[in-house]
Design a binder for these strands. Structure first.
Lengths: 107, 107
DNA sequence: TTATTATATAATTATTCGATTATATAGATA
DNA sequence: TATCTATATAATCGAATAATTATATAATAA
């Protein structure tokens, strides 16, 4: 059983188009900031600030690899989120279309 | 499958302590505005405005009975909400403690 | 009719929030 | 070393939001 206040905090985090998209994308594979920038068509600082909120809320964790920072899902302790994600469309195509993979970005 | 935008709209609605509490309370039984005011310890206009948002978002529907307006859940078409509510504590005790039921309120 | 009760609406205020812009940091490379 | 790249942080701005206060509406009761 989850306290209402804790649930509300998490729902506020996922109740944003950019952050919810980030979490769905991370279901496909770990991604770095520049990849989110490309897929979500927004600025690097915008992504960085959303990632900080998600990290503070315990929804993602980060791993530094050289100059890149890879983010991964940390929602194992929040099965209600996994339930929720099942109702939302796969972002597989978006991750596969990344042009980063063809260039010298993030490797 | 639900569009991300639609999901975000609904998550914004439930990502508020007062509104999420209202929805959980409505799982027990239909309630009128004055009962929410008593249970949630807030003002009547505050409840009314939250109810309007929930109604606009299609999460509740209203039934007028004399001078009272009873609200009920309208989440049959949103199973992901029913899933979510399962993780949250029952509000049965709060509804049962209503002093309204002993007085001339809401009958 | 007038008064009372339940609810809704409008106006206001304070706060929060998402995005942008500018700047800083830290690692990689020349 | 100096420079370039990826990311983070800080500052600012405007929009959205929750709550309060005041007022309106609508049904009931006296």
């Amino acid at each position: 059983m989850i306290e209402i206040e804790n649930m509300v905090d998490t729902l506020k985090l996922v109740g944003d188009k950019c952050r919810l998209s980030i979490l769905l994308l991370l279901q496909e594979r770990d991604l770095c900031v520049c990849e989110f920038v490309e897929i979500l068509q927004t600025s690097q600082p915008n992504i960085s600030q959303h990632m900080r909120k998600l990290k503070d809320g315990g929804l993602v964790k980060e791993t530094k690899k050289g100059q890149w920072v890879y983010y991964s899902l940390a929602t194992q302790d929040k099965p209600f989120l996994t339930d929720l994600f099942k109702y939302l469309p796969s972002q597989k195509d978006k991750v596969e279309k990344l042009t980063c993979e063809d260039s010298n970005c993030c490797d």
